[in-house]
Design a protein around this nucleic acid. Structure first.
Length: 251
DNA sequence: AAGCGTAGCAACCGCCAAATC
DNA sequence: GGATTTGGCGGTTGCTACGCT
């Protein structure tokens, strides 16, 4: 089954938008509001694909866009959010009022990547460039005991155990220090997790806490339930304006 | 001044998931 | 319940401006 094109492309303009096109789009959305992007171009008298109109509006014409130089605070926030979320630009953008996912994505690729590289940090892993990648596939408790004396405790990070360079289990085999994020503390335990009606006492693994169920990193059973958890759960307290780093300390 | 390389950014493309038919 | 449509997202491309030689 082939996928039909999103719109009729035979008679649509492409490339940079003209001032007149911008004005038409702005006027139409002011009059009718956003939505129904497929029919919008025709209704607005634009020879553009609906997707193109949506992109132009969201990334450039929206009145609430900030546009301009990113502040140092925004830089650091983007870096932190990227270390948590990866290339989830729309989620990151949701945390920066007036910024769009496209803008942040471009800014990341042109500025922040280089900034991190200059700091000696790998922008994709947020680890020091010279640091070997963690071995997450072969965890051997027996080997860990034998190698105990070889572990360089001086390089321990802020977690008290080696949480980054090597699996914690190698140093502390009795401890389960799997990195987890917990939602901000709520006295009433019944939180609206979209996890198929499980109680809030269920511990989410790191991947599921980030709203990425069914990923390779998922080590709990939550991620196997149907439905996405990415939209309904305020997993970082983002909508409340509070980032709760309890249990997820940043470097 | 011309040519070339690079950076920055707007826009496009293809895929996916939710919504609708 | 399956097919189709639609909106949204992330990756990529291509154009333009700028700096260097």
């Amino acid at each position: 089954m082939g996928r039909s094109p999103c719109c009729e492309k035979a008679h649509t303009n492409k490339g940079a938008w003209t001032k007149e096109e911008d004005d038409r789009l702005i006027a139409y959305i002011r009059a009718h509001g956003e939505g129904c992007w497929r029919s919008l171009p025709k209704a607005a008298g634009l020879l553009r694909c609906g997707k193109s109109c949506r992109l132009r509006w969201i990334n450039y014409l929206r009145p609430d866009l900030k546009r301009g130089i990113f502040t140092e605070e925004e830089d650091e926030l983007i870096i932190k959010l990227h270390s948590l979320l990866g290339n989830k630009w729309s989620l990151i953008a949701g945390r920066l009022p007036g910024r769009t996912d496209n803008e942040i994505k471009n800014y990341w690729n042109t500025h922040i990547r280089r900034k991190l590289l200059n700091r000696g940090i790998d922008p994709s892993t947020h680890r020091p460039i010279n640091e070997p990648s963690p071995d997450v596939t072969t965890i051997s408790f027996a080997a860990a005991v034998k190698e105990e004396e070889k572990i360089d405790i001086s390089s321990t990070g802020g977690f008290g155990c080696k949480t980054e360079k090597n699996p914690v289990t190698e140093k502390c085999p009795d401890l389960n220090l799997e990195l987890r994020i917990s939602p901000p503390y709520q006295p009433q335990a019944e939180t609206p997790l979209k996890t198929g009606g499980r109680s809030s006492s269920t511990t989410l693994c790191f991947a599921c806490s980030l709203g990425i169920p069914n990923s390779e990193e998922c080590s709990c059973s939550i991620g196997t339930s149907s439905g996405s958890s990415s939209s309904g759960y305020d997993f970082l307290g983002l909508t409340s304006g509070v980032l709760d780093y309890r249990g997820l300390e940043m470097k």
